[in-house]
């Protein structure tokens, strides 16, 4: 046995060609993905950078900090959220926090309510056969979804009158109820697919194993449908969080939400883009965090519904 070491086998010409092909494909695929990522993330980047610009930078379309404009805290200062102002009292910051809280309360409550109600409706639609003369399960599902066909503008005046009469204008409850109604069709649609994908024998097995109908639902069906429920919840949350039209219409001082505040960043010299950008960025930040943390649930939930 000789103690010689070193490479014996070498890549032949076809091996090298194969590797070249493999690398080219990788580069192309990742290049495309990277390009798409840039397109998707650019608006967020723009919003974030704009919050550090002053008026001329915004107008001249400067994009890269330090290279073509000098970052300033102007936008954040106007919100009372810059390093210099964060420990001082700021009425704008207080208002921001109040609007932020309003958004949190209304979207969380509306989404939770929609997921609870929507899941029950969806479970009923997937497990029982309803017949009201010619109306069957499929028609009921469509009725729910058909709410989305109507443009919200059409409902603006009726809601305004209705809410005025019910004294729900500018109240959390009013907005929560409206948002629940708004996202309910989507929740029902997602959850119906979720429940339909769960074989009914699982519940029957649970019944035979000794559970009651409700316990079988809670212990067997719910855990399996949970990823879908979380996906539906997050989707509702995003829709409620970003809703502007009805919030602008039905709230004024007390229940006003973040999107309304963002839109109202106009000063005497026109729109204060920097403070609007800072506000927008602060507004989307929670969603970004939720998206990153719960992304796997969203994918799982959507996929489960899609495959079956």
């Amino acid at each position: 046995m000789s103690a010689e070491t070193g490479q014996i086998f070498k890549d032949a010409a076809p091996d090298l060609k194969f590797r070249a092909k493999w690398y080219t494909r990788r580069v192309l695929i990742y290049g495309t993905l990277l390009f798409w990522t840039v397109i998707c993330l650019f608006p967020i980047y723009w919003t974030a950078t704009t919050s550090f610009k002053i008026a001329p930078d915004v107008m001249q379309g400067h994009l890269i900090p330090w290279a073509d404009f000098e970052p300033a805290w102007r936008g954040w200062r106007s919100l009372g959220l810059s390093p210099q102002t964060i420990f001082e009292t700021s009425t704008v910051r207080e208002e921001f926090l109040k609007r932020f809280t309003n958004s949190v309360i209304t979207s969380l409550a509306a989404s939770a309510l929609a997921v609870v109600l929507g899941s029950m409706a969806a479970y009923g639609l997937s497990r029982f056969t309803y017949r009201l003369k010619f109306i069957k399960n499929r028609d009921i599902s469509f009725f729910f979804l058909s709410q989305l066909i109507l443009p919200p503008v059409v409902l603006a005046l009726p809601f305004l009158v209705l809410y005025k009469e019910l004294a729900l204008l500018d109240s959390h409850i009013g907005l929560i109820l409206l948002y629940t109604l708004m996202v309910l069709p989507i929740v029902i649609w997602i959850m119906r697919d979720q429940f339909s994908a769960i074989p009914v024998e699982l519940e029957e097995a649970a019944l035979v194993d000794g559970l009651s109908v409700w316990k079988a639902f809670l212990q067997i069906v719910l855990p399996i449908a949970l990823p879908g429920m979380i996906a539906a919840f997050i989707l509702s949350l995003v829709l409620c969080w970003n809703e502007y039209f009805f919030a602008a219409l039905l709230t004024s001082t007390d229940a006003k939400t973040i999107p309304v505040m963002v839109a109202s960043q106009t000063g005497s010299q026109g729109i204060n883009w920097w403070s609007m950008a800072a506000l927008s960025f602060a507004a989307i930040l929670p969603l970004v965090i939720i998206g990153i943390v719960l992304e796997r649930f969203i994918i799982k939930g959507m996929a489960a519904g899609a495959v079956k």
Partner: peptide, 18 residues
């Protein structure tokens, strides 16, 4: 109800809790 009949059932599609 099934729970009180003291029976056990094996289903065609197994119906295991996933």
């Amino acid at each position: 109800p099934p729970a009180e009949r003291d029976i056990a059932m094996v289903f065609q599609n197994y119906a295991l809790y996933p």
